[in-house]
Design a protein around this nucleic acid. Structure first.
Length: 302
DNA sequence: AGAGAAGACCATCAACGCGA
DNA sequence: TCGCGTTGATGGTCTTCTCT
């Protein structure tokens, strides 16, 4: 049995043309004709009825078609499986949220690459839900997401990133020793919203106020929110990891607010329960061994 | 509408190249 | 050497276009 002859047969039926089948299979048209003749010889039946420039499937051809399609499908699935296995042997597929991709992976990946030079990295940036789906579908080896729960997935908390109130160094709040929610509520706020439960807790902090807070801008992108604060457009509640550079440079200052204590973004490492890949385990070992809180800034009272 | 030309499509053959 | 592929040429048949 020659799989290429069967492939030609299926392609001809699909395109209803010898020429188009030849084009699709990157062979010449005479070669396609020869393959069909060879297949017809092998099966001792006529698959096509040639009528001048046209052709039709014979009854035998119609009978054989679903079997040919199955053979081809099975063959392709098998080949793909081998390719995936081959790929998995040296490619680590990581799914990561945007903030993780911006602030965690740039620190982790160089360390991982130094330890495992031969392993190539493939990164997918997506929302946590998408990453969970892809881990379940075995399209990703590991995921870095916010807390996700699924019976088939192992979710291990890696890092807790406190959310704090940040202001520009020239802002009057920068000289304050302590702040009340009323004072915060009167200031223009650039509100970064990522939809996690912890952000709802910040919303609830304002519910005690008589007047609603001045949320001038609601932003779903961390970098944009940060840059607006740097540009003096307002104050913002931001995860600490995202502003480390600005704090080091003295551009942004974190403010002490006891009300924010315990509010944080948690990064979890997701992998398939009991079926984690070898590369995923290697990645887990590296990221667990790193201190992602190194360089954490101290809150400034002014 | 009908005839003829042009184009499209498939089959076949010859000559040749390549790899097992 | 053999099998399978290619290109190029040629022929048969059918469709589409153009002209009268």
């Amino acid at each position: 049995m020659n799989i290429e002859n069967i492939e030609a047969f299926v392609y001809i039926v699909h395109f209803n043309s010898f020429n188009k089948a030849a084009e699709a299979l990157y062979v010449s048209q005479p070669s396609i004709s020869a393959r069909i003749q060879s297949l017809e010889r092998e099966l001792s039946v006529r698959l096509f009825e040639r009528e001048g420039r046209h052709f039709t499937l014979t009854e035998k051809g119609k009978q054989f078609l679903p079997y040919a399609q199955n053979i081809l499908k099975t063959y392709k699935a098998g080949r793909q499986q081998l390719q995936v296995a081959e790929k998995q042997s040296d490619e680590l597929r990581i799914g990561c949220t945007l903030s993780g991709a911006n602030y965690i992976l740039p620190e982790v990946l160089p360390v991982f690459k130094r330890k495992h030079r031969h392993i190539r990295i493939k990164l997918l940036t997506a929302p946590s839900e998408t990453i969970l789906e892809k881990v379940l579908a075995k399209e990703l080896d590991v995921g870095l997401t916010r807390s996700m729960s699924h019976p088939d997935v192992e979710s291990e908390q890696l890092y807790e990133d406190p959310i704090r109130l940040f202001v520009h160094r020239s802002h009057p709040f920068a000289r304050k020793i302590s702040l009340s929610m009323e004072e915060v509520g009167r200031e223009p706020i650039v509100f970064f919203e990522c939809g996690s439960l912890d952000w709802n807790r910040i919303h609830r902090l304002f519910q005690t106020l008589d007047v609603p807070p001045r949320i001038e801008m609601q932003i779903d992108n961390l970098e944009t929110a940060k840059k607006l604060v740097v540009g003096g457009m307002g104050i913002s509640f931001l995860p600490e990891l995202s502003v480390r550079k600005e704090i080091r440079e003295g551009v942004l200052l974190p403010l002490e607010m006891p009300q924010l204590s315990g509010i944080s973004l948690r990064t979890h490492l997701l992998s398939l329960k009991g079926q984690g890949t070898e590369l995923g385990q290697l990645f887990g070992e590296v990221i667990r061994g790193m201190d992602l809180t190194a360089g954490r800034p101290q809150a400034s009272p002014g």
